[in-house]
Design a protein around this nucleic acid. Structure first.
Lengths: 194, 194
DNA sequence: GTCTATAATTCGATAGAC
DNA sequence: GTCTATCGAATTATAGAC
């Protein structure tokens, strides 16, 4: 689809027998994320991923070993949460919501969050990864100041928003503009943070 | 597993050639809901359902026609929402949350809600059913008084709670007692209803 | 009404040629 | 590094005996 060009190593032709493995690997992973994000783990096929990556199915196996290992690679996610301990208490809900919206609606080609949430509902391995990410990235970022109970319920609110807006596409929720979401939902987050 | 007994028709033995089709159908549907609820649509197999119903796999096909039609039958759900228009505005959040908790934690054998939510995330047919239920049961029950935007966001909050507590089982959310949930989450619902 | 046997696909994974 | 060919397993669905 897109042409990544000759890469940072310059325009010189590769020596005979050279491997373009890094790029091929990235192309496969990108296609895999797109499939996992749209269809979940079980409906995603190695053959389908390979077709999207314009490569043979056996190459996917060669690069990632198995469908499960490919899945693990697709589930490696960095939420890139900012440091929230420095945010004033009164601004926290708003900052949280803006960070959330920026990430979910920022780069349409970034399927990482979609993969994680969609898969976690029917796949125990993905659910475990989601819990790890919550415990390792979300809870530390906002848990210090408010304790695990409120941190958990804030996550429930944000995941509920992602679920209805981006996965289930409930019309009344999906139709809102980002500004409307921020305006209407921030007070709700704030209520849990009290 | 459980013995439904001779049924309301009394203890008399059936005449030769009699059909117990109604009961068989109910047993299959019960087993199907349990499977769909735990594994989602794709991982659920006719063979697995049949085994749990202590019956042959071909009987499931005979009674329901196909896996998809069995799924449709399992997705027929009545939320049994009370009339919320009569509830005082200040009590609405609390009543809503209690109704929600009662339904989700009431009858452990009632897998209907679990089936719907889990399947809807990876199955477009189920997602469509969920949107229909929202539009046909949830929105009318609470939408009149507050408009679609707030009704949508209330649903996002409640589905987020169901997602993290009953499907993903995020420890910090699953560990809360129902009373704690009601106490901590009601103000958040209330904030959206303002 | 219930089960046996099997057809027809589809998929993950492997072996080996080039 | 890439592709062809194929195996073995699992699944939905059907035909037909009892």
């Amino acid at each position: 689809m897109d042409d990544p060009g000759p890469g940072p190593s310059g325009g010189a032709p590769r020596p005979p027998g050279a491997r373009s493995s890094d790029r091929t690997r990235a192309v496969i992973l990108r296609a895999a994320r797109a499939h996992f994000a749209r269809h979940g783990y079980e409906r995603t096929t190695i053959r389908g991923v390979a077709a999207d990556a314009a490569i043979d199915a056996s190459m996917v196996m060669r690069y990632f070993g198995s469908k499960e290992k490919l899945f693990d690679a697709a589930l490696t996610i960095d939420l890139r949460l900012p440091d929230l301990t420095a945010v004033a208490r009164d601004d926290l809900a708003h900052v949280l919501l803006r960070t959330f919206l920026d990430r979910w609606e920022g780069d349409p080609a970034d399927d990482a969050l979609l993969v994680l949430l969609r898969s976690a509902v029917t796949n125990e391995r993905a659910a475990e990864r989601l819990r790890e990410i919550f415990a390792g990235q979300v809870a530390p970022a906002l848990g210090e100041a408010m304790g695990p109970r409120r941190a958990g319920l804030v996550s429930a609110q944000l995941l509920g928003l992602a679920l209805t807006r981006y996965l289930l596409r409930v019309p009344d929720v999906a139709a809102l503009t980002p500004d409307e979401v921020a305006e209407l939902y921030a007070p709700a987050l704030d209520a849990v943070l009290s």
